[in-house]
């Protein structure tokens, strides 16, 4: 298990999604963690030190596991990039008909296009 910086993690996650399109799954786990051992935590507790928690993010495709930790400072940037990656790769999910207009319009074109002028459009494209 490799603990990566945020950006390398995101790009590795992207390639994980790309590698698993034919078969396989991708798992992403979020967990609140100190990234310290229990012994160390207890020591810090007795010493009265403040314990810093971070969000540990792990991703695996079943073969390779990567991880990163997100702190309070950078979680907003990370979650925005993460959301963008998910949006870009979760394309196999079903769209509800004309629920949102931009995507609905695209689907319409694909469905209706060939019906109207099937051979003509195909030839021109």
């Amino acid at each position: 298990m490799v603990l990566l910086q945020l950006d390398p993690f995101l790009s590795e996650l992207t390639s994980m999604f790309e590698r698993s399109t034919e078969k396989g799954s991708v798992w992403v786990t979020l967990k609140r963690s100190t990234l310290k051992s229990k012994v160390k935590r207890n020591k810090m507790k007795t010493a009265g030190e403040a314990i810093e928690y971070r969000c540990l993010v792990r991703a695996t495709d079943g073969k390779k596991t990567i991880s990163t930790s997100v702190g309070a400072k950078d979680h907003q940037r990370f979650q925005a990039s993460y959301a963008t990656i998910l949006k870009a790769h979760m394309t196999a999910l079903k769209k509800r008909e004309r629920k949102d207009k931009r995507k609905g319009a695209e689907a319409d074109k694909k469905q209706k296009g060939p019906k109207k002028i099937s051979s003509a459009t195909k030839a021109s494209v």
Partner: peptide, 23 residues
């Protein structure tokens, strides 16, 4: 298997990121 649930998930992701990173 619905794309609209992925959108809802995005919100939940953000909630969990915030809760886990900030407390």
């Amino acid at each position: 298997d619905q794309a609209q649930d992925a959108k809802k998930m995005e919100k939940l992701n953000n909630i969990f990121f915030t809760l886990m990173a900030r407390g």
